[in-house]
């Protein structure tokens, strides 16, 4: 279990004379600070519009809206903790959409209605999305880890190439399908949309892999000091490849989910999904310099812009203020990260 998520409870285990005060430890924890910001925003809107904003249905709606972004952001968290970045997310998503409908067409399920579809069609489409994600993530990983191209430019390259490839494969035209509607609009559990469960699964899987698995430990180590990881016997290149594969995989799955939700590909869309994901991860306290971050922080970081947007609409303020606010909150979050590092590091 990581110290990031629960410093207060574990601190009591080993009683020591000159520890930092618990309060200071808590405030220094970026996840706690971000969570406090989220709570303040929710309280503010609740006071302003209690009858409309603070409703179970409203939160369910928001959760469904952010589910796809949540999946992508979990993958992006891993990438950013290695001090990398993945700008190719829109390409992964759009290619995921395209591969999903191509796979559907191959198994003859493209024109199936929502009631006539079956698990085979859905699994085929999912496999298509996964394949697209692994291809683009694999290219990212090989180029970043083995050719040592800086991730910003490597993934900028695959962003353009992937979006172009999607247009080529689709000949510039979107494909509609209702075969995946049970995923995007179904309720396996009454009252809770499937997308919410999928987002939750991504969060739990990401949490286990990052905070509880040796894989996550090595991810932090590589982001913190790749040379130390290498000397400790970790195959840094192979690990980075895996991390970018995870980033690509979550994008590809997001593409599959996007087709399921919107019932069509959107080859011209998703252009700011990479920035949204990176914003969420950074808001959640994950350091763009690597070595620090958490999945729970990312989850909170996904919710802050979503809550702002939703609350502004409900309170009748122009929702475009959300973009303005998130922009400044992002700058503040990264600034805090740097302050925290400077006050912590000793030489």
């Amino acid at each position: 279990m990581s110290t990031e998520t629960e410093p207060a409870t574990v601190a009591a285990e080993e009683v020591t004379p000159h520890r930092e005060p618990v309060l200071r430890t808590v405030v220094r924890n970026p996840t706690v600070v971000t969570f406090a910001v989220l709570v303040v925003i929710i309280l503010g809107f609740t006071v302003a519009e209690p009858s409309l904003f603070f409703q179970g249905d409203n939160f369910l709606q928001i959760a469904q809206n952010v589910a796809i972004l949540t999946v992508v952001s979990v993958g992006t968290t891993f990438v950013i903790i290695t001090a990398g970045v993945d700008l190719s997310i829109p390409a992964g998503i759009v290619l995921g959409e395209v591969f999903s409908v191509k796979a559907l067409a191959m198994v003859g399920g493209l024109d199936a209605d929502a009631d006539a579809t079956n698990a085979g069609y859905i699994l085929a489409a999912l496999a298509g999305g996964v394949l697209a994600g692994l291809v683009i993530g694999g290219i990212n990983g090989l180029v970043v880890a083995y050719l040592r191209v800086p991730p910003l430019l490597a993934t900028l390259g695959t962003l353009g190439a992937g979006l172009g490839m999607a247009l080529v494969l689709q000949k510039g035209v979107n494909t509609a399908t209702y075969a995946l509607d049970p995923v995007g609009h179904g309720h396996l559990v009454p009252g809770v949309p499937n997308l919410i469960w999928i987002g939750l699964i991504a969060v739990v899987a990401g949490f286990v892999l990052l905070h509880m698995a040796v894989f996550g430990r090595h991810t932090y180590a590589i982001g913190s000091n790749p040379e130390s990881a290498r000397r400790a016997g970790i195959n840094v290149e192979r690990h980075l490849l895996k991390v970018y594969l995870i980033g690509g995989l979550t994008s590809g799955i997001a593409g599959f989910l996007s087709v399921s939700y919107f019932s069509t590909t959107s080859i011209g869309g998703h252009s700011t999904d990479n920035l949204q994901a990176i914003t969420a991860v950074a808001l959640g306290g994950t350091s763009l310099f690597g070595g620090i971050g958490s999945i729970i922080g990312t989850l909170i970081g996904v919710w802050i812009p979503a809550i702002l947007n939703n609350g502004l609409v409900i309170t009748g303020v122009q929702p475009y203020w959300q973009q303005v606010a998130v922009g400044f909150v992002l700058i503040a979050a990264v600034w805090f990260d740097q302050l925290r590092r400077r006050s912590r590091d000793r030489f």
Binding site: V214, A221, N225, S228
Partner: peptide, 28 residues
């Protein structure tokens, strides 16, 4: 000379880096 520690990890994580004690094979 340059230590080769991972500064963001705590002491136990550094000490066991690359040789983690595992449970269920994949978890540390």
């Amino acid at each position: 000379q340059d230590l080769a520690l991972a500064p963001d990890l705590d002491a136990p994580a550094n000490v066991f880096l690359g040789r983690e004690i595992r449970r269920f094979r994949y978890l540390h």
